[in-house]
Design a protein around this nucleic acid. Structure first.
Length: 205
DNA sequence: AATTAGATGTTCT
DNA sequence: GAACATCTAATTA
């Protein structure tokens, strides 16, 4: 079952991020179907979070979609090369988003390998925010601001992940955000290899 | 195994 | 011009 608008429009990105862990991210592009289980993600809040692109009401051509209604795709170009996929949450005007950082491939493996030019479906296929987007065929040109309740990109429901199977850490690559860099807003599944960076000791929250 | 360089668009200084 | 929610291949040890 496809996740509905009210799932995304809740007023708590961190809770939504936790709920999104283990769900299935699907893309159907010109009849090409690929799907993967969300194994790692991070929450970004539009207010009181210096790591967020839309912090302090910052509104640019790039961040515009973060202000749209929950259940919108926010795709942006990182380091001029990688297309990072985010799920916009909260109501229109409140710029929260969840960055999907890794997936475990479930369907369309051959297609993902072809897109990534990988002979084998090992963990480098989709364990990282840039690589998963490439594997699923997501890019800024075609998918920026897309509605996730449509039939191009959407998220399928899946059984909730137990707290004890969820690891918490600080977010990756946000050292510039000063005190907000310490926020424990990155989550990943404990028993999966499909994660960009594992902690030495898993922390559960 | 760990570190480094090179790829390069958008945004801000 | 600098920094950036990154990845890969090459280099060093």
């Amino acid at each position: 079952m496809k996740l509905e608008r009210d799932f995304y429009e809740r007023n708590d990105v961190v809770k939504i991020a936790q709920d999104l862990l283990g769900k299935t991210l699907v893309t159907s592009l010109n009849g090409q179907y690929t799907a993967g289980k969300i194994t790692e993600l991070e929450a970004y809040a539009g207010r009181d979070d210096k790591a967020c692109h839309a912090n302090d009401g910052l509104r640019t051509k790039r961040t515009e979609a973060m202000y749209w209604q929950g259940g919108t795709a926010y795709v942006y170009l990182c380091y001029g090369i990688h297309h990072l996929f985010n799920v916009v949450t909260n109501r229109e005007g409140l710029a929260d988003a969840v960055l999907i950082r890794a997936i475990e491939p479930l369907e369309g493996l051959e297609l993902m390998q072809a897109r990534r030019k990988k002979p084998k479906p090992d963990k480098t296929l989709s364990s990282g925010p840039g690589t998963l987007s490439a594997a699923l065929g997501i890019n800024t040109q075609q998918h920026y601001g897309l509605d996730l309740l449509g039939d191009t990109i959407w998220i399928e429901d899946a059984p909730a992940v137990r707290k004890s199977d969820r690891v918490v850490s600080t977010r990756i690559g946000v050292e510039y955000a000063e005190e907000d860099a310490l926020k424990p807003w990155r989550f990943y599944l404990k028993d999966t290899k499909w994660v960009s960076k594992k902690l030495k000791e898993d922390k559960v929250m």
